[in-house]
Amino acid sequence: DTINITLPDGKTLTLTVTPEFTVKELAEEIARRLGLSPEDIKDTHNGKTLDPSLTLAEYGITPGSTITLEIK
């Protein structure tokens, strides 16, 4: 299953994830792909900052969802 990550420059990154991924694991994968530190990444969905300890499923993030990435 894939989700879309909207980057600060407007580009989109597509990642393969499972509903059990935590937001922290997602940030780590994004950081790895972009050459950043996971601590520099802030993920938001529907205007809410995502708690790193919760899973994508707990936020109702499903395949095809879009998450907005902010760099701290």
Rank of each mutant, 00 (worst) to 15 (best):
T12N: 07
P38E: 06
D51C: 08
D43T: 15
T6I: 15
I30E: 00
V17P: 01
T6V: 15
L56T: 01
L7Y: 04
N46H: 09
E29W: 14
I61R: 00
T22W: 01
T49S: 09
L7P: 01
V17W: 15
R33H: 11
S37T: 11
K72M: 13
D51W: 05
V17T: 04
K24T: 04
T18H: 12
P38A: 11
T6R: 15
K11T: 12
E20V: 08
L54D: 03
D9A: 05
K24F: 09
L15S: 00
E28G: 05
L56D: 00
T22H: 01
D1H: 11
L69G: 00
L7W: 06
K72S: 12
T49W: 14
L15T: 01
D51I: 05
I71S: 06
T68R: 14
E29A: 12
R32A: 07
L69M: 07
T55V: 03
E39V: 15
N46D: 10
A27M: 15
L7I: 05
R33A: 10
T66D: 04
T44R: 11
D43F: 15
E28D: 10
E58L: 03
L36G: 06
D51N: 09
L54R: 14
T6M: 14
L56M: 03
D1L: 15
T68N: 11
I5V: 13
S37C: 14
K11W: 12
L15M: 08
T18F: 08
S37Y: 12
S37E: 10
G10Y: 03
L26H: 00
F21I: 09
L26E: 00
T66E: 07
I41S: 02
A57D: 05
K24L: 10
A27S: 11
D1W: 15
D9P: 02
L7N: 01
P38C: 15
T2A: 08
P8D: 06
S37G: 07
L15W: 03
E25G: 04
I71F: 13
N4H: 12
E70N: 09
E20L: 12
R32S: 07
T66M: 05
D43N: 15
P19M: 09
Y59P: 00
G64F: 02
I5P: 02
G10I: 01
I61A: 02
N46Q: 08
V17Q: 00
D40T: 12
G10S: 03
L34M: 08
F21D: 04
E25H: 09
H45A: 12
A57L: 13
E29D: 04
E58Q: 08
E25C: 07
T6H: 14
T49E: 11
I5M: 03
T66V: 08
A57E: 09
T68K: 14
I71D: 04
L56C: 04
E58K: 03
K24C: 08
Y59S: 12
D43G: 15
F21T: 15
T66I: 08
I30K: 00
T55D: 01
P63Y: 04
K42C: 15
I41D: 01
A27R: 14
T16K: 13
P63E: 06
T22M: 02
D9R: 04
L36Q: 05
I41V: 07
L69N: 00
P38K: 07
E39W: 06
S53N: 13
S53M: 10
G47D: 07
L34N: 00
L50Q: 03
H45P: 05
R33F: 14
K48E: 11
G64M: 02
V23N: 01
I71R: 05
H45E: 08
T62Y: 13
F21A: 07
V17I: 14
I67S: 00
D9M: 05
I71Q: 05
D40N: 10
N4P: 01
T6D: 07
A31I: 05
G35C: 12
K11F: 13
L69D: 00
D1Q: 11
T12L: 09
L50E: 02
A31M: 07
P38S: 08
T16R: 12
P19Y: 04
L26V: 04
K72P: 09
V23Q: 00
L36N: 04
L56Q: 00
T16S: 12
E28Q: 10
T12W: 09
D9Q: 05
I30R: 00
D1K: 06
I30G: 00
V17N: 00
K72Q: 11
L34H: 01
I5C: 04
P8V: 07
T66A: 04
Y59C: 13
K24S: 06
S65T: 12
L50C: 14
K72R: 13
L56N: 00
T44M: 12
T68A: 13
L13H: 04
T2R: 08
G64D: 04
T16E: 09
E28N: 08
E70L: 11
T22V: 01
E39D: 11
N4L: 09
G60V: 01
K48D: 09
G47A: 04
V17F: 12
L54C: 11
T55P: 06
T62F: 14
R33P: 00
G35A: 05
R32L: 08
I71N: 04
R32D: 03
K42I: 15
G47I: 10
K48P: 06
A27W: 15
E29G: 03
A57P: 02
T6C: 14
T2S: 10
T44L: 15
R32G: 04
A31G: 07
L54S: 11
N4C: 07
L50P: 05
E29M: 10
P19E: 06
L34D: 00
D43H: 15
L56W: 02
T2D: 05
L15H: 00
E25M: 14
I67T: 02
T6S: 13
P8N: 09
I41W: 09
L15R: 00
I71W: 10
P52V: 12
I67A: 01
P19F: 06
L15Y: 02
K42W: 15
G10C: 10
G64Q: 03
D1R: 06
T66N: 09
L34C: 07
N4I: 09
R32I: 06
S65H: 06
L56G: 00
L36F: 10
A31S: 08
I41K: 02
T66P: 01
K11H: 12
G64W: 02
D9H: 09
T55H: 02
G64A: 02
L15E: 00
K72C: 14
E25L: 06
P63M: 08
A27E: 05
V17K: 00
T14Q: 09
P19I: 06
K24A: 11
E28T: 08
I30F: 04
L54M: 15
G64V: 01
A27H: 15
L15N: 00
T18V: 06
L69H: 01
N46C: 14
S53R: 10
V23T: 02
K48W: 09
E25V: 03
E39N: 12
E28K: 07
I30A: 02
G10V: 01
T14E: 06
E28C: 11
G47V: 05
T12C: 08
I71K: 05
S65I: 08
I30P: 00
N46R: 06
L13D: 01
E58P: 00
T55G: 02
S37L: 10
L54P: 03
L50W: 14
D1I: 15
G64H: 03
E25S: 06
L56S: 00
T14S: 09
G60E: 03
T14I: 11
R32M: 08
L26G: 00
D51S: 05
T55Y: 03
R33S: 06
I30M: 05
P38G: 06
P38Y: 14
E70S: 07
L56Y: 01
Y59I: 15
D40V: 12
T22D: 00
P8F: 06
E20S: 12
P63A: 10
H45K: 10
G35Y: 05
T55C: 03
